[in-house]
Structure formats: structure tokens, C-alpha cells
Amino acid sequence: MLHIDNLSATVADKPILKGLSLTVNAGEIHAIMGPNGAGKSTLAYTLGGRPGYDVTGGTATLDGQDILALAPHERAAAGLFLGFQYPVEIPGVSFVQFLRESANAQRKSRGEAPLSGGEFLKLAREKAGLLRMDMDMLKRPVNVGFSGGEKKRAEMVQMGILDPSLAVLDETDSGLDIDALRIVGEGINAIMRKPDKAVLLITHYQRLLDYVKPDFVHVLAGGRIVKSGGPELAHQLEEHGYEAVAA
């Protein structure tokens, strides 16, 4: 599904990703762990096409399509979803308003009929329920006044509504208390644990992986994948630290 080959990228002209390669097949969940500043968010943003994150080498394809050549909204229509480490607050624009337009823009580009207002609200209510989020919160301006945990749950509600084939989730577990962690973990499983979908789960900690069991775990350090393994690698990292395990 996702093939990243020898990807290099700069942020504000500073080289951060330095020849990163990774393959994620449909039906798989991959965890990416790594120390602060390793380039995890840079990987997420580069895949998402954030301005300022410039690809200087290598390739990334999603279902065979060169996603690096696409605009951010086209990447979303191609099936990519980015869960933000720091979801952005947008005063005056409500979730339901922009998500319906987003979903319909995606559908249009795939030649599908748009969702009516009623259909969209039904879908949104269902996904909000999955994440135990009050539907009223989705009528409020995007992330404004939300707690850290609410923002992360709202990210997952959006993922549920947009139904991507590949989700890149950047520290979705940070800022969550134990209960919210379980709800978010179960939400990720319910939405993405499917044979035709895949997840790239960027995290610092083992704890989310207790709920969302990864098939593979990778260590990202210095802008590259320096070690890959199964779920046991996450436990080793937790126990012995990045330096000992990835050295």
C-alpha cells in the first residue's frame, strides 16, 4: 500500500529525513518510535505535503500512485489521512461545516455522489459515538477551546468520517488520560483494522500499543529507520531505551 524508498526531506532547508525506506502493506499496522527530534513528525508532514517540508530525494507511493507529486487535498482523496500531533485551532469554522465539504470534495474527485446534509450528519454522529464524543462538539469551531485529549479524539472522529485507506497518526496518544487512551485505541481498531487499510502509528510510548497491536515496529533515528522488528521491539525500547536497542 505505502512504499517509501530512500526518502530525504528538508525542513526550512535543514536536512531531516536522510534516506528513509519503509513498506506498509494493506491490513498492517506499523508503529514508528524514536527519540524527540528524530524526524517522526517530519515524516508525517512530508507524506501529507505540508508547505515548508521539501522532498530532496527518494519516492513515496500510495497504491502505486506517486503521492509526493500531489497537492495535500489530492493526497487525502487518494486515501491518506494525517492525524496531527498538534491539531490546529480554526476560529469561526465548524467541524461539521468543513468536514462535509472535505468529504464531498474527496468523493467528487473519486467520481462518487456527494453526501446530503442528513447523510453526513448521520455518519458524523456514528463516528462521534465511536469515540464517545458529544455531537455538539463537532458543531463548534475546529479545535477551539478543546482540551488536548478532546483534540486527539476529534482527530479520530475525522478519520472515521473520511474513511482513509492509510492513516499516519502522529502521537495521537499524547495528551490522553488512561480512559481516553483506551477509547482512542479502540476507535483506531474499529476504523482502521481492516484488510484493505493500513496505519502508520507514530508514538513515543508502548502504552498505545497495548490497545492497537502493531504488526511491525520501527525505530526512527537521525532521519532514517535504524531498526525494525515485531511488537517485542516496542517492549525492548520501553525497557532499555532507544540508544541501547537501536545502537
Binding site: A71, V88, F98
Partner: peptide
């Protein structure tokens, strides 16, 4: 706000629609 625009676009909203939504909110 560039961060806001990218956030909206990352959800599949074309740039011109993302701009329009943010301008509407600004004027309102």
C-alpha cells in the same frame, strides 16, 4: 493562517475552498 489552511487541505478540502472558509470566518 498557513497552519490552518494546511489542516483543512489535509482533510481533502481544495485550497480555494479552504481559503473561502477561513475568509468567511474572518469577516463574520
Amino acid at each position: 493562517d498557513a497552519a490552518g489552511l494546511f489542516y483543512l487541505e489535509s482533510r481533502g478540502l481544495p485550497p480555494e475552498l479552504a481559503k473561502r472558509l477561513m475568509l468567511q470566518a474572518f469577516i463574520a
